[in-house]
């Protein structure tokens, strides 16, 4: 019995981790600046490629993954400085600009690197409970997703940066008037967002084939999680991921991945009809 229960938890954890890791970066950028970063998938791809590159050079996997996330974060801050910064007052234009960027990056990568790069293989290690065998790395991913949520909680609720960032999110003009350097806050937030995208790519790099278009695998999940979660990462994205993971898990188990994804999309479309402002609006309202 407990083996079955653990198996259900394991499947849930797997989908939940995928949703949180792919959406967290997108949600932070959206929550802070109201910008949807259409190049989100390319930052994920960047994280994956850097990880694999470093591992092939002999760097241990965990260190490669951290370096990959940092790389994506730094590139993100450069992109923010050069492009995204101009469009904070025109959110739709920022969507188009980052989409243009996404096209440029994916297709250039295809031109330069070619279609497939040799992967590094999922870290071995599995354990058995009851008659079932489970991959340890999948649990590591779940741990990483939880760690990301805890980390974000600490950054945004317990640090000085977090206080100023939340103030900026509430009312940018007022925060600026009170002396917050909103430009720098935005730059750092964008960097955190893309670093999390990079981390997502880094963590999943060992589990999948590396192709320049791999970002597309993650964007649907990240989009729908943010659509359902609304603008608040902690109060929105996490519950949205729990909710979507349950739907997905149930459908995956009986009908397979693709029906799971279709079912998730249908659920999202039904929910936006009922809760146009996303789950976080309900939670925030309750909280008052």
């Amino acid at each position: 019995m407990s083996a079955e229960l653990f198996s259900v938890f394991y499947q849930f954890a797997d989908v939940f981790a995928f949703l949180i890791l792919s959406a967290a970066g997108l949600a932070i950028v959206f929550g802070m600046m109201g910008v949807i970063n259409m190049a989100h998938g390319e930052f994920i791809m960047c994280g994956a490629y850097v990880t694999v590159g470093l591992v092939n050079l002999g760097v241990p996997l965990p260190i490669a993954q951290i370096l990959a996330a940092l790389t994506a974060g730094i590139i993100g801050m450069i992109v923010e400085l050069l492009i995204v910064r101009r469009f904070y007052k025109r959110p739709l234009d920022s969507l188009l600009a980052t989409w243009g960027l996404s096209l440029i990056v994916t297709q250039s990568m295809l031109l330069i690197v070619g279609s497939a790069v040799r992967g590094i293989g999922t870290p071995e290690g599995s354990f058995a409970i009851g008659g079932y065998t489970f991959s340890t790395y999948r649990l590591v991913l779940f741990g990483a997703a939880v760690a990301v949520l805890v980390g974000l909680y600490i950054i945004f609720m317990k640090t000085r940066f977090g206080v100023i960032a939340r103030a900026t999110m509430q009312n940018a003009a007022m925060a600026k008037a009170l002396g917050a350097r909103t430009g720098r806050i935005y730059s750092i937030s964008f960097g955190i967002g893309t670093a999390l995208a990079g981390l997502c790519g880094a963590l999943y790099a060992p589990t999948m084939t590396l192709i320049p278009t791999m970002g597309a695998t993650f964007v649907v999940e990240s989009f729908v999680t943010v659509v359902i979660g609304g603008a608040n990462v902690l109060l929105g994205t996490a519950p949205a991921a729990v909710f979507l993971a349950m739907i997905r898990m149930a459908l995956n188990a009986s009908y397979g991945q693709i029906i799971g994804q279709i079912g998730m999309l249908f659920a999202v479309i039904l929910i936006i009809r009922v809760l146009p402002e996303g789950l976080s609006s309900v939670l925030v309202r309750r909280g008052r």
């Binding site: 234009d93 600009a97 243009g100 440029i104």
Partner: peptide, 10 residues
Amino acid sequence: MGVLLLATVM
């Protein structure tokens, strides 16, 4: 095409 999109917006 990507360059054109970016250039248009900017």
